[in-house]
Structures are given as structure tokens and as C-alpha cells.
Amino acid sequence: MTILSRKAALEELERQAADSIRLTAEPLSQWRLALRRFRRRKSGMFGLGIVTFLVLVAVFAPLIAPYDPNEVLIGKEDVQKRSGPCIHLLGCPEDQPQHIMGIDGNVRDEFSRVVHGARVSLVIGLATVSVAILVGAALGAVAGYRGGWVDNVIMRILDVVLGFPALLLAIAIVAVLGPGLTNALIAISIVTIPQYARVMRAQVLAIKELDYVSASRALGATPRRILFRRVVPNAVTPLVVLGTLGIAGAILEAAGLSFLGLGAQPPTAEWGSMLASERNQVFTAPHLVFFPGIAIMLTVLGFNLMGDGLRDALDPSLNE
């Protein structure tokens, strides 16, 4: 902790004192302490706010969106394709149908598509990170716990994966599997496995030497029981942090793959592919590029801020 100003120093001392008093008054669990530290960080709470907002938007998308995301409005309403936003509150004539983000190139309501895109993006983020964490943590735990040649083989293979620039390897994998959202998700999972495996391995290496693990071993617990009951539960904290930040990365990468035409395919309301299909119209219909991009940025920002906040709260030693 670097202290430059007296005021900050005093505040920090007060905080520490307050913490220690509370600690003596009532013993707090690690998680409650972490929660308290998390709440103190404004940016982390802001991130949590964005993420909560997005989750609500995704869950209630059909209620929020005025149209079906794939509903073509030709013949139903008097609208032109790629016409700009029409918001009644901002002076758009009342007799025209309201489209707050305008109309896309296939005469669909852009706002409805952006809202439904939240579902796709959150699923992408959660799915890729879950798969990558499960596989990565399993590999890392086995490598760290077994050591020896098992460790060597697993880590050298993962080194090769890390040897590629991530997006490039993901592109190459999609090239083999064929373009599509599922294949893009598989590709992103594969390229992000090594980071989780490495962190898990480092954790396991440190934890397996601790006394309570030795005690468990002395009591005759099987290696599997020791690994999954004693070691792994104590090693997950950094994975939670990394996973949250990983969701941000995965969403960004998936949007990138979709932008290149390798991920989600039209007519799926995915932000990256929505952007891609209108990118040549950026001079005539900038709103069709602007809104999906803002949506991606907001989502990624939310997870990044939340991840940073979690890192500070759960494991101060992980701080950059």
C-alpha cells in the first residue's frame, strides 16, 4: 500500500482499526469480510450494477423488447430499412411508430435485437468460462497434485496453446470445425483453458504442503478425497476472480469472431454479427453500428470492473 497523502493514510488506518475492532467484537467469516471489502470499492459495485442490469435485461428481454428480434416489419409498419432512431420524447412525430434505436438493414427493430443480444452474450460468457474453468481447473489440479511426468506432459501441451495469440488460435480452430456460434464457443474455451490450469496448479502446489492436507493424508484419506475435499475447495478463490474477468474476455472474443463471420450467424441477434452485417453502411446508418458496439462495451466493462473489485476483495495478493 503506497501512501502519498496524509488524508489517505489516516483513512486507511481508521479502516484497519475499525476492521480489527469488528473482528474482536464478532468473528466474521472470510466471505463476509470479502463482501465488506468488495462493497467499499465503488468501481466494483458499479460493475456489479451493470452486470445485474444486463442479467435483468436478458431475463426479461421478451417483456422489454417491443418486437420479436427477428420480426421483419415490411408491410406491418410504414418504416424504411436503416432509418434512424425515432423517439417520441425527443420530437419524433407521434404518428410514426417509435423505434428508439432505429431500423436495421432487414427492417427489424434494432432495439429489440440489442435487448435480445444480451441473452446471447451472457450465455456465451458463462458457457465458455464454465467449460474452460472446469477443464482447466481439473487439468491444473491433477498436474499440481500428481507432479512428475503427468505435470510435465499437461503443462507442456498447455504451453503450446499459450504459444499462439489467443484470437488467432480460436480462428484456426473455427477454420477446422466450421463457422458457427457453438464452434466459436468451443474455440474460445480451448484457448482460455491454460490460464485457469496454471492458476489452479500454482494453488494446488502451495496448498498440498499445508498441515491440514498432511493431517488428512496421515488419517488415511485417498488421494482423490484429499484433492477434491481438502485442496480444491481452498484453491477456487483466484479462479472466481479470473473467471469473472474471463467472461469479459470471452464476450469480446466471441463478438470478434462473430464480426469476422466465424461465430454467430445471421439472423441470430448477436451484437458482433449485427455490427458485421451493417459495417459497410456505417456512413449512412451509423446507429446500426453504434448501439451494438455500446452494448458490447458496457457488458465487457461491467464484468471487468466486477472482476477487479472481486480481486481486491477476495485476494489482495493477486493485485497487479
Binding site: F259, L275, F290, G293, M297
Partner: peptide, 12 residues
């Protein structure tokens, strides 16, 4: 900055 998609910023 870290949250901005490269392709979107490019188009903008």
C-alpha cells in the same frame, strides 16, 4: 479502453 471492441472503435 480495455472494454472497447477493436472493430467497433475502428468503425466509429
Amino acid at each position: 479502453g480495455v472494454s472497447m471492441p477493436v472493430f467497433w472503435l475502428g468503425l466509429m
